[in-house]
Design a protein around this nucleic acid. Structure first.
Lengths: 156, 156
DNA sequence: TAAAATCCGACTATTCTGATTGGTTTTCTT
DNA sequence: AAGAAAACCAATCAGAATAGTCGGATTTTA
């Protein structure tokens, strides 16, 4: 699971699309204006979203894009994965299973990034486009230090 | 909380440092060789780590770097925050409180990225350098879909 | 047929990363 | 005191990724 501004732009655009669409396609030009994203850049993002099965397109005048599924079923994680290239091969990073071989031995931080990737994926697949629109996004977390892994294990 | 390869290199280097150090400083040249990171790049990272209070330095022959605190108390989140520039001002992103003002109104995805940032921070501050060394990193998560926020709220 | 829109490929400017170079300072060892 | 080992420092650079631009081609509606 890779995080980048590209994914954030895609989510912004889809939230805009979902909140404006009522069974009729929305033109990218409208989204570009409202969200202040360049039209051509949006076209590139939506090409990926279409190939990833996130949106459907209607060509010709009056055309545009629609969500391929109801916003209650479209998870943010699906959006991110559709637009972000899956891996980058530079050393160990969340989502690069092989890139961290250092003298044939898996680098010592591999499991950490792997698990971080899981945590991010879990959170982003617990939030749908609809959740973002209706503001059901905040967890109970807050910004406090938690138990460390050692402390958690020691407490058992 | 920004995630980048810079932070991952820093964690790799600090894990190496902590696992080799026994109260004596370790030269960056040694870490550079073992972890296959360029010495000069490591110098830049450790300059930030020192300014951030993560490591202490000893100059002169036989010198090097030591952790500023025991590895059981050094959280991964502290390392990442020391080396990664805090914000990037382009639009709404986790950790940019102000950058997403679109016509004076907070962008609709703001809370999502904010909460994602919290989730990442929470996980990375639940893991210490010592945890990474001893492999206490894996959660109970696994790669499954969770309840969506709506489903969770509806179940109450 | 004209216009609206998606679709497509190539190109550009900017930023970030990781690395390089060429030093300087400090401090230990001899 | 001399030499060397190391941290320190600043400027620069090549490559990749990001964000955007341009000029069209294709589809479809009106």
């Amino acid at each position: 699971m890779r995080l980048s501004t590209k994914g954030r732009y895609a989510v912004m655009a889809l939230v805009d699309l979902a909140s404006k669409s009522k069974d009729k396609p929305i033109a990218l030009a409208d989204i570009a204006t409202r969200q202040e994203i360049s039209l051509s850049y949006l076209e590139q993002l939506f090409a990926k979203l279409r190939r990833g099965g996130v949106v459907r397109s209607v060509r010709g005048p009056g055309g545009g894009y629609m969500l391929a599924m109801p916003p209650t079923q479209l998870r943010i994680a699906d959006v991110i994965m559709a637009v972000d290239e899956p891996i980058r091969a530079t050393r160990c990073s969340p989502g690069s299973p092989q890139g961290c071989m250092n003298n044939k031995v898996r680098c010592i931080t591999h499991d950490l990034w792997e698990e971080l990737g899981n945590q991010i994926y879990l959170y982003l697949s617990s939030v749908t486009i609809e959740d973002v629109i209706t503001g059901r996004v905040l967890g109970t977390s807050g910004l406090v230090h938690r138990q460390t892994q050692s402390e958690r294990l020691a407490a058992q």
